[in-house]
Simulated assay, not measured.
Amino acid sequence: MAESAKLQALFGGTFDPIHYGHLRPAETLADRLGLQKITLLPNNVPPHRPQPEASPAQRIKMISLAIAGNPLFDIDQRELQRQTPSWTIDTLIELRRERGERQPLGFIIGQDSLLTLHKWHRWQELLDYCHLLVCKRPGYAEKMSTPEQQSWLDTHRTEEISQLHHSPAGSVFLADTLLLPISATEIRERRRAGLSCEGVLPAEVIEWMDQQGLYPAQQ
Rank of each mutant, 00 (worst) to 15 (best):
A2C: 04
E3M: 14
A9K: 00
A9F: 02
F11V: 07
I18A: 13
R24Q: 11
P25I: 03
K37C: 11
P42S: 01
N43Q: 14
N43T: 14
N43E: 14
P46V: 00
P46D: 03
P47C: 08
H48S: 07
P52C: 07
S55Y: 02
Q58F: 00
I60F: 10
I60H: 05
I63L: 15
P71Y: 03
P71A: 12
P71E: 11
L72H: 12
L72P: 13
L72E: 14
D76K: 11
R78I: 03
R78W: 03
R78D: 13
R82H: 12
R82C: 08
Q83Y: 05
P85G: 00
T91P: 08
L95Q: 12
R97C: 08
R97D: 14
R102V: 02
Q111T: 13
T116G: 15
H121Q: 15
L126W: 06
Y129A: 06
L133N: 13
M144H: 06
T146G: 08
E148P: 03
H156W: 03
H156L: 06
E160P: 00
I161W: 02
S162Q: 12
S162M: 09
L164Y: 01
S167A: 10
P168H: 11
G170R: 09
G170N: 06
V172P: 14
A175I: 04
P181M: 06
A184V: 01
E189L: 13
R191L: 11
R192A: 15
R192Y: 10
A193E: 14
G199H: 08
G199W: 07
G199I: 03
A203H: 09
L214D: 01
L214T: 01
Y215D: 13
